[in-house]
Design a protein around this nucleic acid. Structure first.
Lengths: 110, 110
DNA sequence: GCAGTATTTTATTATATAGAAATTCAGCAA
DNA sequence: TTGCTGAATTTCTATATAATAAAATACTGC
């Protein structure tokens, strides 16, 4: 249980999600990720370190650079599922709002 | 992005996961969940409130009791995915450990 | 040794949790 | 109605955790 919670916690930080999304189109260096996300280098490095510990990303060092890439493929499905769930929820809210609007402004509508 | 992070954060707490798992075999009251998880009533109620806000569970009040149930079906898949990912990771570690043991104790093995 | 990348450390701030106490709410009985 | 009881929720406080930003430290290649 602790492990599962830990796993979700790694994904519960916007900056880390940004990094994951940025890595979805291939391997990148820390500098590239710093530029793409707008974070400080130290923080980006720290978040990448956490993702590495969690086994979500892998690292390859070459010359002055560190290249990060996604290694846990389940990330894609996880994000898809959550996005779908959020979409469903918003659609539901929209439907509820619309029908209440309908009642208020054109009360014939059932 | 914030929304996705928020979604994962809801699932990043062991007590909330316990509650979700407890609800997987059907609707239960707060008292039942308190007993099953061993938490304080106030805390269980608070966590259930968060899950309710997040749209993960639903609530039905009847008499003195509040009955909670899972309403976001994607939870099942999410948990399966994470568990699978954790299992993969552990198997990988085990393999790496075993082969290093092999090298150390019976170094003929390549 | 110097310059460019990356990581680690430190301090501050913000957020979230557990636990205790107080409050609300529904049902029941005097 | 009034008060009481059980169930759930909310509020409050202390503690712990985690994020940011800044500074210091490593590592690599020239």
């Amino acid at each position: 249980m602790e492990r599962v919670a830990e796993r979700f916690k790694v994904l519960s930080e916007p900056m880390r999600l940004k990094l994951i999304y940025a890595l979805m189109d291939g391997e990148k260096t820390v500098s590239e990720l710093v530029e793409e996300t707008g974070g400080l280098q130290a923080n980006v490095s720290k978040h990448l370190g956490m993702l590495l510990d969690a086994g979500v990303v892998g690292r390859r060092k070459q010359g002055l650079n560190a290249y990060y890439r996604i290694v846990d493929e389940s990330i894609y499905e996880l994000c898809d599922l959550v996005c779908g769930s959020i979409r469903d929820r918003l659609e539901e809210e929209l439907r509820a709002f619309s029908s209440s609007q309908g009642r208020a402004t054109a009360k014939g509508q059932q």
